[in-house]
């Protein structure tokens, strides 16, 4: 509960998701146990209305799985997602459809996320009519409105997705999500397939839409520059866990978790020709099927101590509104 007493728009608590790894026939006959890869491991987050929460991390950190859990494309194994205090996991039928109307998703790949055999108009009006937002007769007018909203020409309605560039397709994907008049948008790596100059156009579009429609947003990305620019708060994920969470500017200017620090140090910046240096982080990501004990980051952490190798550091809040999952974070009592 927030201080005002309203439940947050979305509250995630202790979310865990594991994927079963296919066993070969021989492995099954040999009686090898079913192996599981942990994609999410006890993730807790909250999103307030009108806010943009960024989720950053490298591939395999579970950020896309989290996004898909939020729109119920995956069901979680443990933990809960609450929308305005209602448990999303328990929703069925009409209630679930209602939730999906309010929480929409924009996808990473502007090419595969649109049905290639439907015109843009068909795609948009289907979303409108099937969800009963407008009668069929009024759908074309609404389609024109939506296209205008994302700065596409009105004649786009009669054309097929293949006739558009990546950036324009992403606008169509945004329009499709907006067709349902959602209160929250989950954007899953929506810029990663786009060119820099096009990215900027889409970012501007998102910002203006958010202002005009009062949208809340969960912005999943690996691009630290964009995240810093766009989000109010940021959660940094590593191997299925949130390792740091807080106000974006505060996290970027004074990262508290060694992983966040390494991530920021590794990001190339214009005008920062550092020449040769030691890489901020050595080693590779451990296998999610065989996570290291203790802190999952300890094998790559320059500061790891004995404690880090044995005990999981919980994500604890500090007085500055920051949460960090590190034994060595300032303010933690050394044991």
């Amino acid at each position: 509960m927030t201080p005002t007493g309203h439940p947050p728009l979305i509250e995630v608590h202790g979310l865990a998701k594991r994927f079963a790894v296919e066993r070969g026939l021989i492995e099954r006959l040999a009686g090898r146990p079913r192996r599981q890869a942990a994609a999410l491991d006890g993730v807790s987050l909250r999103l307030e209305a009108g806010e943009t929460l960024a989720i950053v991390g490298e591939s395999g950190c579970g950020k896309s799985t989290l996004a898909r859990c939020l729109v119920r494309l995956h069901s979680a194994d443990e933990g809960s997602i609450a929308y305005l205090g209602h448990d999303v996991g328990l929703m069925r039928g009409e209630e679930l459809r209602d939730y999906r109307r309010h929480v929409q998703m924009i996808f990473q790949d502007p090419y595969s996320s649109l049905n290639p055999r439907m015109t843009v108009g068909q795609t948009l009006s289907e979303a409108i009519v099937v969800n009963g937002l407008r009668p069929r007769a009024e759908a074309p007018a609404r389609v024109a409105e939506l296209l205008d909203l994302v700065n596409l020409p009105p004649d786009a309605a009669t054309r097929y997705p293949r006739e558009f560039s990546g950036g324009q397709r992403q606008r169509i994907g945004i329009a499709r999500a907006l067709a349902l008049e959602p209160s929250c948008i989950i954007a899953d790596e929506i810029l990663s397939a786009l060119d820099v100059s096009v990215q900027a156009q889409i970012i501007n579009l998102l910002i203006s839409l958010q202002k005009r429609l009062g949208l809340s947003m969960i912005f999943v990305s690996h691009d630290l520059r964009v995240v810093r620019f766009l989000s109010h708060r940021v959660a940094v994920m590593y191997l299925g866990r949130v390792v740091e969470e807080g106000e974006t500017e505060a996290v970027f200017s004074a990262p508290a978790h060694p992983y966040t620090r390494a991530l920021l140090a590794a990001a190339p910046e214009v005008g920062l020709s550092r020449g040769r240096h030691d890489s901020a982080m050595t080693g590779e990501l451990p296998s999610p099927m065989n996570l290291p004990p203790g802190c999952v980051f300890h094998p790559r952490c320059p500061l790891a101590t004995g404690l880090c190798r044995t005990e999981v550091p919980w994500l604890l809040g500090t007085e500055t509104g920051r949460s960090v999952a590190c034994h060595l974070a300032p303010g933690r009592a050394p044991r």
């Binding site: 490298e58 140090a265 590794a266 190339p268 890489s279």
Partner: peptide, 13 residues
């Protein structure tokens, strides 16, 4: 990923 990219860039240098 950025941390891996950093390693590869350093390798090339």
């Amino acid at each position: 990923d950025v941390t891996i990219q950093d390693q590869i860039l350093q390798l090339l240098l």
